[in-house]
Amino acid sequence: MGRKRFKGRALDGVLVLHKDAAMTSNDALQQAKRLFFAAKAGHTGALDPLATGVLPLCFGEATKFSQYLLDADKRYKSTFCLGVSTETGDADGEVRERHSVSSLSEATVAQALDNFRGDIKQVPSMYSALKHNGQPLYKLARQGITVEREARDVTVYELKLLEFRSAQVLGEDYAELDVEVFCSKGTYIRSIAEDLGELLGCGAHVSMLHRMAAGPFVEANAVSLQQLAAERGEGLAEQLDHHLLPTDAPVAQLARIELPEESAYYFKLGNAVMDAQVYRIGDEGDMVRVFDSAERFLGVAELTDDGRVAPKRLLAN
């Protein structure tokens, strides 16, 4: 007989998970899914196994809005190891080269960081999750395959040098710096580290990476798998539901519009509906969250130039 298929509950909402190190984002997702006994769930942008921190998970109907979190800005704290480059650009990879950093000063490092603020171009790492012909780059890299990658435009809004530890202070043949990075979607912290190491002529890699925030979700609101498991114990999954944020949490930054009963009925059928609120809420092309008169979330819509609310993503129920 085949394995019994995992079904689970029809559960909707968002969990702000704190991912631990040494586990993949998918491992974290599957464990959370089982703890909640949820039928459907997805994460909103993978964290490397090395990385810790904020990993929003969408359950059920909330998965329809996960793209908004994939597109959201992120904030990280990271430690760069200068003087050592690795195959993967992080501490999980084999050491590729070592260079002396005995004369490297904080002032030199601080000046070099200026090159990575604002609008910059990055060539994604071969160990990223980007896909080439349907295959994640990291899978190709592990097979010894390297493919050409185009530089991508990203924005680093903030890049703070928190602390520099010289080789002399550490008593080692490498130096370290702690940074805090606030950046746009698609920014690779390991690429900043590698490019900084290349600019300084000494090589570098990421030895620690922690995501502090993903869009509106911050680590102060995150819960770990260990906390969830301890809270549930031998009890029912339902006792964890209070950790879930509403289904519209990924789009909470959008303006809200409430439709009367008749308009809501046709909107749920996929029809654009007229509403006088459109002219007060936003401009043509703006996206809004749509609710009915009972304050039930119906989905997201686009405002049109003729005063209509045109559905873009609707909840099933």
Rank of each mutant, 00 (worst) to 15 (best):
G2L: 03
R3H: 15
R5T: 02
K7A: 15
G8S: 11
D12C: 05
G13Y: 03
K19L: 07
A22D: 13
M23V: 11
M23E: 14
S25C: 01
D27R: 09
D27V: 10
Q31I: 07
A32T: 04
A32G: 14
K33I: 04
A38H: 04
A39K: 09
A39I: 03
G42P: 09
H43R: 07
G45S: 07
P49G: 08
L50D: 14
P56N: 09
C58F: 12
F59V: 09
G60F: 09
K64R: 12
Q67W: 02
Y68K: 14
Y68R: 11
L69G: 15
D71M: 08
D71R: 12
D73V: 06
K74I: 07
R75F: 09
T79W: 06
F80P: 01
L82E: 00
V84Q: 13
T86C: 05
E87R: 12
T88Q: 05
G89R: 14
G89P: 06
G89K: 14
D90H: 05
E94D: 15
R96T: 13
E97D: 12
S100G: 07
S102L: 12
A107Q: 08
L113C: 01
K121T: 04
V123A: 10
V123L: 00
P124K: 03
P124W: 09
M126I: 11
A129D: 12
Y138F: 11
K139P: 01
A141N: 08
A141S: 03
G144P: 09
V147F: 12
E150D: 15
V156M: 06
K160W: 02
L161C: 06
L161G: 10
R165W: 02
G171L: 13
G171R: 07
A175W: 15
V181Y: 00
S184E: 03
K185R: 15
I189V: 14
I192F: 10
I192R: 14
A193F: 06
E198K: 14
L199C: 14
A204M: 11
S207T: 14
M208Q: 08
H210G: 00
R211C: 07
A213W: 08
A214E: 05
G215T: 00
P216N: 14
N221F: 02
L225P: 11
A229C: 10
A230G: 05
G233H: 05
G235V: 08
A237N: 03
A237E: 01
Q239I: 10
D241Q: 02
D248P: 00
A249L: 02
A249E: 05
A252Y: 11
A255D: 11
I257F: 04
P260T: 10
S263W: 01
S263Y: 01
S263E: 11
Y266N: 08
K268I: 01
N271C: 10
V273T: 11
Q277D: 12
Q277R: 12
V278P: 00
V278Q: 00
R280T: 06
G282M: 04
D286K: 04
R289S: 00
V290H: 10
A294M: 10
A294C: 10
A301E: 13
T304C: 01
R308V: 02
V309H: 00
A310S: 07
A310G: 03
A316H: 04
